[in-house]
């Protein structure tokens, strides 16, 4: 597709530095950036908290099975969908980075205001997981390949592959063994046990309760690979959904005559 004469004229116009045209489009840029930041924070955060939230809220839910398997799958969905308008329509390889950053900011604000200041939970119990490296890799792979299939395989996969490694440096200190009231647990277990969650008892934790055949005990690795596989498919699926949602088009407006516009049937131009 090439530009129409009008569009070519506009492209020239907005390329003149400090012109009205440049100012207008820059104003437009900034307003849209702010809209996107708030909207993505809201949408991505509510999506994430209601599908993988509990694992993210509590240090004693961050296990090797569900947390590692599920979180990347949930993470890839909205960034993949937004990749379509951002990368395909604007050439901006930033969907993952924007979503990750917005999510992390939204989470920290909520952990400080809701979990810590209101509900008295210590930060050691409620810190959010690190999601940015994987989502940034997703953007970078998409940019380097500029191909949605390769982006699905490498970018989608990277979201899962980077998740456990990104979090282990902050989680490992909490997985040091402790003997508390004669029971072997780890520090995360002790923190979760000590700071009462009245309505979320121990048995409610969806965590690895024992493995059947992880052979070398590599639960995390097995979870990561499975998650990466699903993420590849999810990336492609949701990129397509993003495409669908970006090209929805219009429907007739029955009310248009009320605002001085001609009714549709008369438009035979």
């Amino acid at each position: 597709m090439s530009l129409t004469a009008e569009e070519a004229k506009l492209l020239k116009a907005i390329s003149v530095p400090n012109s009205d045209a440049a100012k207008i489009v820059r104003n437009f840029d900034w307003i849209v950036v702010v809209v996107l930041l708030f909207a993505v924070t809201a949408a991505f955060h509510i999506h994430f908290m209601l599908t993988a939230g509990d694992w993210d809220f509590w240090v004693d839910w961050k296990d090797r099975m569900y947390w590692v398997t599920l979180t990347p799958m949930i993470l890839v969905i909205i960034p993949a969908a937004l990749s379509y308008p951002l990368m395909h329509k604007l050439g901006l390889p930033i969907a993952g980075t924007v979503c990750g950053l917005c999510l992390v900011i939204g989470e920290w604000v909520s952990r400080i205001s809701g979990f810590h200041l209101w509900a008295y939970f210590p930060y050691s119990l409620v810190w959010p997981a690190i999601v940015l490296p994987g989502l940034m890799l997703m953007d970078l792979f998409y940019m380097l390949f500029r191909n949605v299939f390769l982006a699905s395989v490498f970018g989608g996969g990277a979201v899962a592959m980077a998740f456990a490694p990104a979090n282990w440096p902050i989680l490992a200190p909490y997985h040091v063994p402790v003997v508390h009231i004669e029971q072997l647990v780890n520090v995360a277990d002790v923190i979760g046990y000590s700071f009462t969650r009245t309505a979320t008892p121990e048995y409610l934790r969806f965590i690895e309760r024992g493995t059947l055949r992880t052979f070398g005990g590599e639960s995390t690795l097995v979870s990561t690979f499975f998650s990466a596989f699903v993420c590849m498919i999810l990336f492609y699926m949701w990129w397509r959904i993003g495409q669908f949602l970006s090209n929805l088009g219009t429907i007739p407006n029955q009310l248009k005559t009320f605002v001085g516009l001609e009714a549709d049937k008369d438009e035979a131009k």
Partner: peptide, 28 residues
């Protein structure tokens, strides 16, 4: 479009700030 900023900002409070806070309260 500038008013969409206000819409997105109010949606932030519903989707993120007060939504996750709901978890902190009901699990407590």
């Amino acid at each position: 479009i500038s008013m969409l900023v206000v819409y997105a900002f109010s949606f932030y409070f519903a989707g993120s700030f007060y939504a996750e806070q709901d978890a902190s309260w009901h699990q407590t």
